[in-house]
Amino acid sequence: MNRRQVFLSHQQYQQQRESLEGVEAHWRSHSMMADSPLQEASLKAWEVQQARLHRLILGYTGGEPLEQLAQALDGVIEAYEDYQRKLALHEEMPDIAPLAIDDYPYDFEEYVQVIGLCILLQRGDLLPRLALLQDRAGYKGDDTLVEDLLKAYLPDREDVDQWNHEVYTPLVKAIYVDDPDEARELLVEYCNQWYLAFEHASWHDSHLDDEDGGYFGYWAFEAAAIAYLYGLDDSAVRHMVFPRDMLEYARRFSPPPIPGR
């Protein structure tokens, strides 16, 4: 085990991996309390989607090979699609988004994390499917950071100057400042305040709970994805949430050109 964050012991890694990998089988054979069969199906699909994403992040934290994680992204995107279909049936809203990224900062962080994972692990082929789930609900052109992450991979993204959550201000500004030194410092600022900004997230401080074992890793994948796409200097970033070796892996490949730059 070549762990990438110090909080994860070998025992915790094994226990959490077993737990996450057992979620799908559990819900295939167990019922869940819900108001209707459609709601139950959507809740189960959400549990599976979360388990697949957290299993992938746990794999990164635990030191699994990046090529292996890149393949696991197929299952993550499939789980988002399945959850959206079942949520749409339950809510009777065909185009409902799986993530309410305007209202909930934790949903937004999840969205840009998954985008970042696709970018860094060279799975840009999955981004059209992921973005479609959100775009159909009217989120296209809603947030600068999302558009700046996607525009190199998807045609006709929007040029907007607004973002929904204040925590991302340093990262957005790092893209647009002319001074490389200032961009470097903004990237540092973003990573340094990232963990504290999500103090109310369900995963926050999970490494302190030995009994629950819910820790799977704390990572600002979107920060590394922006550094990769826009050629930012990350040499001053020291915070543990910055996935440096995933960025180094991505830099083996040339980033796609960004329209307008």
Rank of each mutant, 00 (worst) to 15 (best):
176 Y>W: 13
115 I>A: 03
97 A>H: 09
136 R>K: 15
132 L>I: 07
92 E>H: 14
169 T>L: 12
152 A>Y: 04
86 K>F: 11
129 R>D: 14
130 L>H: 06
71 Q>W: 08
83 Y>H: 15
157 R>E: 04
169 T>Q: 14
135 D>F: 14
178 D>H: 13
91 E>P: 00
126 L>C: 09
125 D>T: 04
126 L>I: 03
148 D>G: 00
191 C>P: 04
69 L>T: 00
116 G>N: 09
141 G>R: 00
152 A>I: 03
183 A>Y: 04
150 L>I: 04
150 L>T: 01
151 K>F: 06
134 Q>N: 12
182 E>T: 13
76 V>L: 10
149 L>D: 00
86 K>T: 10
179 D>I: 08
81 E>W: 08
135 D>Q: 10
74 D>Y: 13
79 A>Q: 05
99 L>N: 06
183 A>S: 14
115 I>M: 10
110 E>R: 15
108 F>E: 09
95 D>P: 01
191 C>I: 05
160 V>W: 04
147 E>Y: 05
96 I>V: 15
148 D>F: 01
120 L>T: 01
129 R>N: 13
114 V>H: 04
150 L>Y: 03
124 G>T: 02
88 A>N: 08
129 R>S: 13
115 I>V: 15
102 D>G: 11
83 Y>C: 10
140 K>R: 15
88 A>M: 12
132 L>R: 15
75 G>A: 08
126 L>E: 05
71 Q>D: 12
78 E>T: 10
168 Y>K: 07
87 L>P: 01
137 A>M: 08
159 D>Y: 09
161 D>G: 03
161 D>P: 01
126 L>N: 04
71 Q>N: 09
172 V>P: 00
108 F>C: 06
129 R>G: 12
93 M>P: 00
170 P>K: 07
70 A>F: 03
126 L>T: 03
170 P>I: 08
143 D>V: 05
172 V>G: 02
193 Q>H: 13
183 A>V: 06
83 Y>R: 08
174 A>Q: 03
147 E>Q: 08
82 D>C: 10
185 E>K: 12
124 G>F: 02
132 L>Y: 14
98 P>E: 09
93 M>D: 15
82 D>M: 09
163 W>P: 01
175 I>E: 02
91 E>Y: 13
141 G>A: 10
151 K>T: 07
73 L>N: 02
